[in-house]
Design a protein around this nucleic acid. Sequence first.
DNA 1: CCTATTCTGGCACCGGATGCCATATGAAGG
DNA 2: CCTTCATATGGCATCCGGTGCCAGAATAGG
Lengths: 237, 237
Amino acid sequence: MERPGGRGGQPRVATREVVLAAVRLFTDSGFEATTMDQIAAATGVSRRSLFRRFGSKEDILFAEHDELFSTVVRYLEASPDEPLTSVFSAARLVLQGYLRDPEITVPRYHLVRAHPRLRDREVAMTARYQAAFSSYLARSGDGEGRSLAAGVAAAALISAHNHVLRGWLRRPEQDSREVWAGFDEAMDFVRRAAEPMLHAERESRRDHVLVAVYPGGTGREELLRRIGAAVQGPEGS
Amino acid sequence: MERPGGRGGQPRVATREVVLAAVRLFTDSGFEATTMDQIAAATGVSRRSLFRRFGSKEDILFAEHDELFSTVVRYLEASPDEPLTSVFSAARLVLQGYLRDPEITVPRYHLVRAHPRLRDREVAMTARYQAAFSSYLARSGDGEGRSLAAGVAAAALISAHNHVLRGWLRRPEQDSREVWAGFDEAMDFVRRAAEPMLHAERESRRDHVLVAVYPGGTGREELLRRIGAAVQGPEGS
DNA sequence: CCTATTCTGGCACCGGATGCCATATGAAGG
DNA sequence: CCTTCATATGGCATCCGGTGCCAGAATAGG
């Protein structure tokens, strides 16, 4: 049912081929200086077909990224309970998608840094991830404040992911084990901040045991003030 | 020295007038259906001058938003110590900028929701805020992990801000005091999550007092596991 | 009045993007 | 083998956003 008939032909030139050729042209001559006619000439695909298959010149550069995004969304949709764990796995999937073929992602990173418009496009991609993660986290919630917590958690997660990703993109030659170690660290960092946020509403406000970390030199007043704020809880409408 | 000569003339038609006229056309006929020639005819400004002054058709819609961003950046640059407080104030400034003239921001919101390209543009704006906040937070840091914490904190802050902002944009007729109350709540929510992150590195790992909140029914093992994770601190390279 | 500086508008042009139509290719069915 | 159907393709005309170029207009200062 997906392809009504199932007949017809496959693209004469593979998508990946086109993307690679386009990336080469962009890095050599600059993104804006490269015309669709040049890409058409280089790939053997007509200008018209390029627009039909990719939608726009920018979309050629981000074609594989779009695929990755679709994969991640499908993964999330098929993912069972425990939202936080699933989302962390999804972020892992994204980073893996980048590390998998540096041949495209690395030059794309440099192009994106150079051209503001491409930068905006890249930002839009990460925003899509953020929205997907956020709605997934909010799905299993009790409504209301859940939305805020989910959004903030997703934003934190994406930010941490991008932090690690940028580190690799700047030096793609480094050992990938270091990258993954950094990723795990960053994810733990986010988990510590996000877990209490997302569970704050499941736990009722009363009947709590109080635990937190403060510097040894903290004064009594400051200590009491902070504890008071903590006990008040993340809500309070 | 800012304007080398200081002579010359002012724009014949005020920027705001052009923006308002453009917004009207966009909402009536759709964004893409509206041509620059129509805007030129409606405002009395020539097509060429429109491009010169605004850069692109999209930029007309976001002209005032760009001004707001510049204002916020200048505010941050002139802001004294205590980074977290300044950044919260900056976020307040942004929300204020929206509430100030709903005549532009509200229809723009609906346009942005309808057209993916404009949506990307809007997302790019918030990303600029996020970058500005992040670099400001990281400025007064000790380097290294500071960058991650600053980025995550900025992302969380922006997300919370946008959460409140969207709430207002959907129902701009509501009492603004409610909006500000929601804003304060959201900011407190973020502060509780962000403050420990940003101070985690100033405080040495040893010599701490342990305090935190857990549900009454938490089992001993789970309790010990979480405390162990908390004591380990947000770093650990 | 003359000059320097800026804003402005008209014109030509490039190139991205879309609609239309004709064609080719491969799979399913007779 | 031939027909049919769905898809991929390519050429063409066209729209329109965006830019470079140049000449005229407006304003402040000598």
